[in-house]
Design a protein around this nucleic acid. Structure first.
Lengths: 121, 121
DNA sequence: TGCCGGGCTTACTTTTTGGTAAGTTATTGC
DNA sequence: GCAATAACTTACCAAAAAGTAAGCCCGGCA
């Protein structure tokens, strides 16, 4: 058992998963890995099925863990921009592996996945 | 949204994660990736913190998804052997990436992770 | 003036996941 | 004969993750 910031992890894999676990984080990162300077709704509209609550939550955690960064463009009409950080980008082999494995699996099960605006490699 | 076996997935990544998501599957696969012909208790004793209920559950799902296979050695005293399948082995780049990323992160935070019987690369 | 879009917040509920602990069958070992 | 071990099963419970739905502030636009 590994202890870090008063949390316990069974192993290093567990540590990594604490950043990118959950249903949406990898999807958000994949998106920001391809597109830069994204607004909240742009991200939302590219993740079919996500709720705004979830998106906000995940974005906050990703920002806290420094995988993405948020720039506030203006306050009066509140406008923001999200971008992936170098740390976030360092995970891209992972996204690619997961995606290709999934595409391959789908192919073997008769589903030909066509990219949704190149969202997922 | 992708539909397969009356489940829905937001994307191929989601599909892949459905096999290896959860707290223990990657750890079990990592273990079986290194050790072969493992009995139930051997696996259990190498996963600090796992409950038997969880282990049984995860092993069943991994078997169902054909990432591992179970051989029944004898029935009267019930004895089994678990092994990783080629499909399971094909995920090993993933395990290695996740583990190395975690080890690296820990190092940057002053924790020098020492391998537990080479369990995790 | 009233509605729409952007970027959220809040409260509440449901679903999923994980944990505890006891019980089961059967064999081996002292 | 008794305890220990292997490989589970079962029931019950708590916590975490995710979903639903409504509301809020602000500015632009017709």
């Amino acid at each position: 058992m590994i202890k870090l910031n008063n949390k316990t992890y069974t192993c290093p894999v567990d540590v990594t998963l604490s950043f990118i676990g959950g249903k949406w984080k990898i999807l958000i990162l994949s998106h920001l890995n391809i597109f830069s300077d994204r607004g909240f709704s742009e991200i939302r509209d590219n993740l079919p099925g996500i709720s705004e609550k979830m998106l906000v939550q995940q974005l906050k955690e990703l920002e806290r863990d420094q995988l993405i960064e948020k720039k506030v463009l203006s306050l009066k009409p509140y406008r923001v921009q999200y971008n992936i950080t170098p740390t976030g980008k360092s995970l891209s082999p992972l996204f690619e592996f997961l995606s290709e494995y999934g595409i391959n699996y789908l192919k073997e099960h008769g589903i030909d996945y066509i990219k949704d605006q190149q969202l997922y490699k």
